[in-house]
């Protein structure tokens, strides 16, 4: 696969050309923060962002999506979106999270809704240029990536290197006007960015190897930290909502105005919310805040982790920033258990 070197002007021309051809969702400023959104012109693209408010999972598992349409005769038909799109500027930790979600939704009961969007996506990853306040991807081996994207952009000085990883990425590069061939020095500078980022993206320092976390949790079920932290929990679910590897959902029927048809939709749900494990009739199988709080960490570092053979926390730090009572920091919790 090819690598091109381009300056900002070439990047802008390229991005505008991509926008002209298909839907592009890219990172833009949103107030003082950043968010993925529909990109209408290259100059709005902010590849220097630190972290987005929500992870890009919303393009594969939207906050609310139609699953089925139904009518009063009880006929249900599947609804899937089919438009191809480019997701532009995904940080390495989010690339890892998307790859994990791909496994969750494709293996062991194939989820056609997630996977149709996923197959329609071309992912342009971008190495981090500015570390966010709470990122710890460096501790989770997710500060850089070698797979899970179609094309990777890395800023080296005033230039970008764009390397295609897949035929889809290669195809994007064919639209690139006036790209230069990178020299050995450019490649060495890119190596240095990767090395630096692994060190820089450690605003919180995990005192163990992430591979040790399932074992650590194995013996920590009754540790005092769960209750101590959960006492402060609002059960607001913010940590769930901003997490790139939270994928639990609720399903609901909405009837159209004609009262003859409707849609079955699914929406993000969160295991920290009080009624998450409640059944009809009133019994709640996870009624205590401590149980809900602990469950989330066990999912990330044990339950889902053992399924994926990889820790289901990518160190983006979004939960740390989103948590009002400041109890969501996974590094703090894990270090306390050590």
């Amino acid at each position: 696969m090819s690598i091109k070197k381009l300056d900002q002007a070439a990047l802008d021309t390229w991005v505008n050309k991509l926008i002209a051809n298909q839907s592009v969702y890219g990172v833009q400023a949103k107030g003082e923060r950043f968010a993925f959104g529909p990109l209408s012109k290259a100059e709005d693209l902010r590849l220097d962002y630190d972290v987005t408010i929500l992870p890009p999972k919303k393009y594969f598992q939207p906050q609310r999506e139609d699953l089925l349409e139904f009518n009063a005769k009880g006929e249900y038909t599947s609804v899937t979106e089919t438009e191809p799109f480019i997701l532009f500027g995904v940080h390495p930790y989010d690339v890892v999270a998307i790859a994990q979600m791909d496994t969750i939704f494709s293996a062991d009961n194939y989820d056609v809704h997630y996977m149709t969007r996923r197959h329609n996506a071309t992912i342009v990853a971008c190495d981090v240029q500015n570390a966010s306040a709470n990122v710890f991807a460096g501790c989770m081996n997710t500060a850089t990536v070698t797979k899970g994207f179609d094309l990777l952009l890395t800023k080296i000085g005033e230039f970008y290197l764009a390397e295609a990883k897949t035929p889809k990425g290669e195809k994007l590069l064919t639209d690139l006007p006036g790209g230069l061939e990178p020299g050995n020095l450019d490649l060495a500078r890119r190596e240095q960015v990767w090395k630096d980022n692994t060190g820089l993206l450690r605003k919180h320092k995990l005192k163990c190897n992430p591979q040790e976390l399932p074992g650590l949790l194995e013996k920590s079920y009754y540790a005092p930290v769960w209750e101590a932290k959960a006492k402060l929990c609002f059960s607001c679910g913010s940590c769930n909502l901003v997490c790139p590897t939270c994928y639990c959902f609720d399903v609901q029927d909405d009837v159209n105005w004609d009262l003859q048809s409707g849609k079955r939709t699914r929406a993000w749900d969160g295991c920290l919310l009080k009624d998450f494990a409640a059944v009809a009739g009133g019994h709640n199988f996870r009624s205590s805040r401590t149980d809900r709080y602990r469950h989330r960490f066990y999912r990330k570092a044990k339950y889902v982790a053992e399924k994926l053979n990889q820790i289901a926390c990518v160190g983006c730090g979004r939960c740390i920033s989103a948590c009002v009572p400041k109890i969501a920091n996974p590094v703090e919790v894990f270090n306390e258990l050590l």
Binding site: I104, Y247, C248, F249, D269, F276, A277, V279, H283, Y303
Partner: peptide, 24 residues
């Protein structure tokens, strides 16, 4: 055992008891 088996296919998370999806 009863749990909230919302999706039935091991995705939605509601029926989980520790690492086990009760629906599966």
């Amino acid at each position: 055992l009863e749990r909230r088996m919302k999706c039935g296919v091991g995705k939605c998370g509601h029926c989980q008891m520790n690492d086990l999806y009760v629906c599966q």
